[in-house]
Amino acid sequence: MKIKSHLDTNERLEFDMTPMIDCVFQLIIFFMLTLRYTAVEGDFNIKMPIATDAAANPDALPTIRVRLTAAPDGRLSGIQFSDRPVANFAELRQLVMDYVGGGRTPDQADSGGEVEFDCDYRLKYQYTIAAITAVSGQVGPGGQIVRLVEKINFAPPRPE
C-alpha cells in the first residue's frame, strides 16, 4: 500500500525567524562594541641579582656595562659600552654581537652573557627599552629572532 504523505507539498513549512535574527544582531552589536584593536605585546626578562651565583661560573662571559645618559628633557644624550662612547643603538648591537661572537643563528639560545644597564633617572623609558632591544637580539632576514644577550640587569637607580 502506498503511504501518502500527509504533507501538502504545495504548502511550504514556515517558521518565524525574527527572534533568531534579533538575537544574532544583538550578538553582533555586543562583539562590535567590545572589539579593541591593540598592538601585540611581548616581554623582556630582567634578572635582578639577589643571590649572585653567576660569579661562581668561570666560563660565563664577563658582564657588559651599558651607560645611558639623558638630557634634561629625558631624551637620550649618550650611550657608552663599557666606558666606550657609542653613536647609536645599531652600533651598540654590533658591539654586543662582537662580544658574544658572530655567526649566531635564530635556533641558538642566548649567549649566556649579561648586560648591566646604568641609566640616568630621568631617561625616558622608551630609550631604555630600545637599548634592551639592541642588546637582546636582532630580527633576521626571515623574520626570526637571533638572540644575543637575554640576561638583563639594572645598576642601582641614580639619584634624580
Binding site: 630582567i46 639577589i50 629625558g74 630621568r122 631617561l123 623609558y125 630609550y127 637607580p157 634624580e160
Partner: peptide, 17 residues
C-alpha cells in the same frame, strides 16, 4: 608608559625586590 623616567621603573623593581 614610554615617557616614564627609567629611574621610576628601577624604583618599582627595587620595591618589589
Amino acid at each position: 608608559d614610554a615617557a616614564v623616567p627609567t629611574g621610576t621603573v628601577q624604583e618599582v623593581i627595587q620595591m618589589a625586590q
